[in-house]
Design a protein around this nucleic acid. Sequence first.
RNA 1: GACCCCAUCGUCUAGUCAGGUCUAGGACACCAGGUUUUCAUCCUGGGAACAGGGGUUCGAAUCCCCUUGGGGUCGCCA
Length: 658
Amino acid sequence: MVSGGAGVRLHLVRAEQSAASDDVVDSSSRAEGGEGGDDGDARDGVRVRVLSQGCHGQRSVRAVRRPSCGGVNHPKRQRCHGSVTASAPSPPHVLPFFAMTDPRPVRTRFAPSPSGHLHVGGARTALFCWAFARGRGGQFILRIEDTDRKRSSDAAALAFLDDLAWLGIDWDEGPEAHGCGGGERGPYRQSERRALYDAAFEKLIAGGHAYRAFETAEELDAARAAARVEKREYRYDRAALALDPATVAAWVAEGRPHAVRFRVPDDEAVVFEDAVRGTVRVEASELDDFVIRKADGFPTYHFAVVVDDEHMQVSHVIRAQEHLNNTVKHVLLQAALGYTRPVYAHVSLIFNPDGSKMSKRDKDKTLRRVVKERGLDAPVAVDEKTWAWWQESKDHQLDLDDAESLAAALDAHLPEINIDDFRRAGYLPEVMINYLALLGWSPGEDVEKFDRAFLLERFDLDRVVKSPAKFDREKLLAFNLDALQAMPEADFVAAVRAHAEAHHPAFLERLDEAAFARFAVANKERSKTLDDPFRDGGFFVAGDDTLTYARTKAVRKALVNGEPNGFAHLAAVRETLAAVDVWSVETLEPAVQAYADNHAGGKLGKIAQPLRIAVSGGTISPAIFDTLVILGRDAVLRRIDRLLAHREAISTPAETVS
RNA sequence: GACCCCAUCGUCUAGUCAGGUCUAGGACACCAGGUUUUCAUCCUGGGAACAGGGGUUCGAAUCCCCUUGGGGUCGCCA
């Protein structure tokens, strides 16, 4: 019988489901004592366990969009509530809308495994969790899911903390870093929460909800393989459940390794309300008795997640859609443990432009593909031991440094998928936030550009898009460009300087503060990323004698065509430049313009292009007078002389010549 | 294969829950012009979508069903 739990909830259940209340099981009331209800409803032969309900009682598989969620008042709720009495269909039974609203304070968590940098998908999940909680005065929790002892847990594995901090996503509770973290409900690493899990295991086993299983991983692998060969579906056969208690006790006593499995109820349907997908219904019979404790004593993900969410009082679980099916397990576990069920929201996946799932493993996959294509079997760029380990299994991923050196050695381009990749490529954190938010959420009203404050204020689960999104780098780039252009000059200079400090120190050595500032400003309107000024600006730090000339058609055209041609103009304007009093844009521009007026029909381009080639080696640079000033008179004159000295070679077609 | 989820321009999406105001809006990309000392910007204009089929309705992008397509999950990984 249903007992205890939220009074209002149960009251309404009873009021509405007179005869069949037995099979309506409140998740918070199923604590002990085995199955809470009896055989229950016979109307369709399948007992339905309603663990949560929205206002829509349809049993259709098609999702019914929930109007809102969270403990926030919403005008739509009234309407929703009002419709309840009108429906009252056959199972799953209907609870009024607010029955699924978690009345607790809003607390969300982001729970990655410690596997290095944060990838785009994880970042978006974290962002949604953060925005949802913070926008409602709640807390955002970070938790490390490190129950897999085979995975590394060193400092590098926690690199995602830096990525989060860079994005401006700060956490109220969790590992301590960047001035964030701490909290009362820790520790926030699962490997340090063993006692909590152990207590829960005992409770489940004692209650008959779980049992020890002695098959080894190898045996199970073999059974799965056999099933595959016979083209039948593999299901754990519950052999361990048939063991008599004395045998189990003896085996446990002698220390025989074993896992613990959850006993999945027979003939029940698990129905839960997803805040973005609506009603989801899965028959429990689709599941086999899944492992909740591994032989090494650690909990599996499914178990740890449920225990931790309860202990940390997580009210809303916002995660990727790949977890939608897992939710069934979690809901079952919560019911068996007597836990409160959080509100679930499964957001769609992010795909690569080619339609494949965007994954942190994509770098590794790219590398494996290239290695296979080239038929490589000996270590390249990494040591033998690492190579052997990497080859051993597709689950073994190279760490970033190794991956990058291997990519460099193979001349392969690694896809940008980590937040850190974009950081290094010169994207602004606020742009990443903005774009990420747009991937799967929209504020409506044709609004696309917004900041964190707006997100906090407007983000809600009911506007999260259900269909998967492809990651569009072009659009991200366009957003970054717009943000860069909108920056005050001083901010832009500071950002470019910070980027140089991290990635292009040579520019800071070569350019003094004033020159660097001019360099940044001169590049502002032509930069799409903070890296652009450096990528095309290598000539600024090149030696005057080692500059490389692009020997393209455009270069020859500027130098050779016309009468007088570019070389001739250069030779002449060199003297104009040498004679200028003060080396500044204000003096250079009128001087060169005057020369152009007198010798090139006023066409500044006739002079600017040859000059550009002389000082940069090609046809691409910031505005020419800025470029000259940044370089300084000596370098400019030397470069002009050098070009003139190489005029023959440069006039002949070829790719490049040094 | 079984189960679950999804389906509007090339892409991200608005519109779908409360059917008519949608000859479907915006953004990125693309194409054509224009500005500019190069590249990049910038300006103007343009093409571009309701997956298909049934049904409900006076009326369907919107509600229902089927089909098709895409994705996810089926681990002592998380």
